[in-house]
Design a protein around this nucleic acid. Structure first.
Lengths: 211, 211
DNA sequence: CTCGAATGTTTACAGTGTAATCATTCTAGG
DNA sequence: CCTAGAATGATTACACTGTAAACATTCGAG
């Protein structure tokens, strides 16, 4: 599978065979990749602009030619995160029969939670509205609505009206589960697995407790 | 009502009538209050240890007599946040008839979301497991489980087994809704109010989409 | 009353984000 | 092809941060 880390490493630094040129060529992408690495390894606090510059073999002021400030870099990283997330959701959808609405619903939720657990720090930044104000980053805002749209379609075909309300409730439930798992707020046990919790959430949304 | 800001201001600095002593007397509480103010106003990034010290009229190194480092201060703030949250939930519970399980469930959810919207930055820090590793702060860990316990009791009395699973799913759903609202990720409209979304979430958990 | 424990202050340092200025390279128009 | 800008990168500089070390003051138990 195409993972984010493999994506990043291609840009991190020119391969040793290539001559080191004054102009990096793909500095913007390299900075995003380096920042993503730091984000995944040490969390937001570990995203150090000067260290990012060092990792890409460039002076500490060079990033300012591509990003207005540190938050702009993080916004770009978050944007990539959303692209990856929606891609993962699309892929998950593709492996389920189109007429199996309930199965698609479950597959989306599993993909969402799996992605969150694989990239906890990234996930947190993606949804950190104050750190990264969506109003200041239009393209981020656009991408972030795609995963919502995917869920919308499945809900509409499977459960019908009121579609928006049901999409919101579903999204919130899955998102909340993912975040609590990330924050280690839900003690897991052999009989309480991640997959089990996701399935229980989907079942509840579809049928409720009293069913 | 007893608000957090009123709690804090009492400790911020000695009232002007009192003489300024070498020993502050309640520096720890004052630092927490000042940090909370900054957190609510500017987010985590705005919590500046030196500014916190300035706000409480003390040298910039004084906080280190009460907190090992910046994260310890934030952990203490988060701990206070959990206490406030559980208190708000308890209060909400008290204003609903004990035999009205569904009403209690709804009241808890409303209180949770209301608290989150009133203190977004605090709420985010409270659940930011990486920034504040719960394993390093035992008392934080203990307090953070109380609100979960309150919900547990209501779920047990109202919906029965499997209680733990239902509590987890409910908590995740309400938490997710609160966080998405905080992050401005859910566009509100006149016909899609916060109260309406909370009610829809509770209804869904109880009865499901297909009911 | 005294002496160690708490608590607060001063000084110091490495590291950070970012602005300003200078250097190099690329690219489009003659 | 040549040559200005325009892009892009490097250096230098600054204010500010978290935090350690050494020193000063006050408190509380014996």
């Amino acid at each position: 599978m195409f993972t984010m880390s493999t994506w990043g490493s291609a840009f991190l630094m020119e391969s040793s065979t290539e001559a080191k040129t004054y102009h990096h060529g793909q500095l913007r992408e390299a900075l995003i990749a380096a920042g993503l690495t730091l984000l995944n390894q040490e969390g937001v606090a570990g995203v150090d602009l000067r260290k990012v510059a060092r990792m890409t073999g460039v002076s500490h002021a060079a990033p300012y030619r591509h990003f207005a400030d540190k938050r702009a870099l993080i916004a770009a990283i978050a944007e990539h995160g959303f692209a990856q997330l929606t891609a993962a959701m699309q892929t998950a959808l593709g492996s389920v029969a189109v007429d199996d609405g309930r199965g698609q619903f479950l597959a989306l939720a599993q993909a969402y939670v799996t992605f969150a657990l694989a990239h906890p720090a990234l996930m947190r930044e993606m949804f950190s509205g104050l750190t990264v104000d969506r109003a200041d980053y239009p393209s981020l805002y656009a991408v972030s609505k795609e995963s919502f749209g995917i869920l919308w379609g499945v809900i509409a075909r499977t459960f019908g009206e009121p579609v928006e309300q049901r999409t919101v409730v579903s999204f919130a439930s899955i998102h909340g589960l993912a975040l609590l798992l990330i924050e280690n707020q839900l003690p897991l046990s052999p009989d309480k697995t991640v997959e089990g919790l996701v399935a229980a959430t989907i079942d509840t949304l579809a049928s409720g407790f009293t069913a």
